[in-house]
Design a protein around this nucleic acid. Structure first.
Length: 496
RNA sequence: GGCCCGGUGGUCAAGCGGUCAAGACACGGCCCUUUCAAGGCUGUAACACGGGUUCGAUUCCCGUCCGGGUCACCA
């Protein structure tokens, strides 16, 4: 096999799922690692289940994750079209070929007939298998029914008692016995190909060397392999990735919270973090390697034989932790690009401000980033740098605003700060330290109430970073406001 | 139910006949500290079960149990 060619073949019936994303990722890693090509093919042969903007959504998610394909939608390529709905000629030709050589046949059985047969077999306690009734229709009979306008399906003729051995890179040799299969449909009565058939025809036409896909397809593989043989195509290598399961080990679904790439994005995940997390779910860099990896690093060390065979339960906690790591480590400008939409959406900054007040925004983000784990949290942590404080943390009030001399403390703090000309981190800290020495108190005694006064919260970046960022004017105002608040607050408390 | 794949701490996951059975997340403790994070140190916690094979099995084989997948004119 000269050139490595892999494909990711989503069906546009919804958004991109994390399972699908991981499959796409592994294909991409494998292609890049081996100087191969990643083909994106859209499997849109089920007209009933198509969803309008699903393709765009999937493409967006893929792009957001940083996965770039070499051939496919928006890219083109020599093996197109890349939408199965536009590849009718390929399927027709292949089906015709099978019909000619007697390996496939027209079947006119109606849904109703099939249903009756299914019921009959069920009565006998058997599993339904098509009875191959139309296998031996004569040419005349076929012509006659076609002439009547009947729309047949085309079925592949399966040879009995055969055994097929699928060679899987991840699972080894897997053998299947054919008596469990029946003459399955390769062309539907609406003229469109059935999945297994379209897949084989396209994988061959697109010269796919390795089929890397989810484990749910393993049971389909013998059928496909049979078709490859019937069509006299070379059989590609297979690698079936284990599934990603929900925390209760059941199949992942909406009721398990976020499952689509776009949901993780909206939650405030950084694409690199999601990619890193998904990579670790089913693949490991091996002993002694850091788990935090850029896609480039993963590509360098990626190989299919380190892919796990065990189904993985996804654990959002680790993703969130990883995300926090990325938020602190990502280059500031780049982080801001991802964070800005959250600030805007939360009405913390306006779009206009986002453009004009860039340096300040960057400085604020830099100050809060270390203690947040999602971009949503980051936006929330930025709020009081842009908006007035509307209230004070409940527990904080009890703890810090009820100290007996707190009004005095804050007033003096305010005075000392008032004397600071250049309102920097160093100078504000110096002023406060002097006051502490003067009063002979511990830092915490004045720092906590000040923090609450300035931010409304009990947690924030270092207090003097907050001061410098807020600026003298706002610090003065907030301190004043807090002093006023505390007075009435304590009076009320005494009454109570 | 038939067939297929799988089963190492709560989760991810090293391991590939001989290890005190790594590491990460989560959890507990301690340190640091101006809160919260981060960071450092540290602790609790695992080879599903039963038979073999072997001097020796987490590792190889068989069975049981459990989980998942698949059995469509869905992909």
């Amino acid at each position: 096999m000269e050139q490595i060619r892999v494909r990711f073949a989503p069906s546009p019936t919804g958004y991109l799922h994390i399972g699908g994303a991981r499959t796409a990722l592994f294909n991409w890693f494998f292609a890049r690692k081996n100087n191969g090509r990643l083909i994106l093919r859209i499997e849109d042969t089920d007209i009933e289940r198509l969803k309008e903007d699903s393709i765009d959504q999937i493409l967006d998610s893929l792009k957001w994750l940083g996965i770039n394909w070499d051939e496919g939608p928006e890219k083109g390529g020599h093996f197109g079209p890349y939408y199965q709905s536009q590849r009718q000629d390929f399927y027709k030709a292949a089906a015709e070929n099978l019909l000619q050589s007697g390996k496939a046949y027209y079947c006119f059985c109606s849904e109703e007939e099939l249903e009756m047969e299914r019921e009959r077999q069920r009565q006998e306690g058997k599993l339904f298998r098509y009875n191959s009734k139309c296998r031996n229709l004569s040419v005349e009979e076929v012509q006659a029914r076609l002439a009547q306008g009947l729309k047949p399906v085309i079925r592949i003729k399966l040879s009995d008692g055969r055994q097929i051995i699928v060679k899987d890179i991840i699972r080894g040799m897997v053998s299947f016995n054919f008596d469990q299969f029946d003459d399955f449909v390769i062309m539907k009565s609406n003229g469109l190909p059935a999945y297994n058939f379209a897949c084989v025809v396209d994988d061959h036409a697109m010269q796919i060397s390795h089929v890397i896909r989810a484990e749910e397809h393993l049971s389909n593989t013998p059928k496909q392999q049979y078709l490859f043989e019937a069509l006299d195509y070379e059989i590609p290598e297979f690698a079936h990735l284990s599934m990603i399961l929900a925390p209760d080990r059941s199949k992942l679904s909406k009721r398990h919270g976020a499952t689509s790439v776009s949901e993780f994005r909206d939650m405030g995940c950084l694409p690199e973090a999601l990619v890193n997390y998904l990579t670790l779910l089913g693949w490991s860099p091996g002993e002694g390697h850091d788990e935090i990896m850029t896609p480039e690093q993963t590509i360098q060390s990626f190989s299919l034989d380190r892919v796990s065979r065990t189904a993985a339960v996804y654990d959002i906690q680790k993703l969130i932790w990883l995300n926090g790591q990325y938020i602190t480590a990502t280059e500031l400008e780049k982080l801001a690009v991802h964070a800005l939409p959250f600030l805007i959406q939360e009405s913390i900054v306006s779009e206009l401000e986002a453009g004009q007040n860039r340096d300040y925004i960057l400085a604020v983000i830099d100050a809060v980033r270390e203690r947040v784990r999602t971009l949503q949290e980051l936006a929330e942590a930025c709020r009081y740098f842009f908006q007035d404080i509307t209230g004070y943390d409940e527990k904080g009030k009890e703890k810090y605003f009820r100290q007996e001399n707190v009004v005095d403390l804050l007033s003096q703090g305010k005075e000392y700060l008032a004397a600071v000309e250049d309102f920097t981190v160093e100078n504000t800290e110096k002023a406060y330290r002097e006051l502490m020495a003067e009063l002979n108190i511990k830092g915490a005694q004045i720092i906590h109430p000040t923090r609450l006064a300035l931010t409304g919260r009990t947690m924030s970046p270092g207090l003097f970073d907050v001061m410098a960022l807020l600026g003298k004017k706002r610090c003065m105002e907030r301190l004043e406001k807090a002093i006023g608040f505390i007075k009435t607050y304590n009076i009320e408390n005494e009454k109570a």
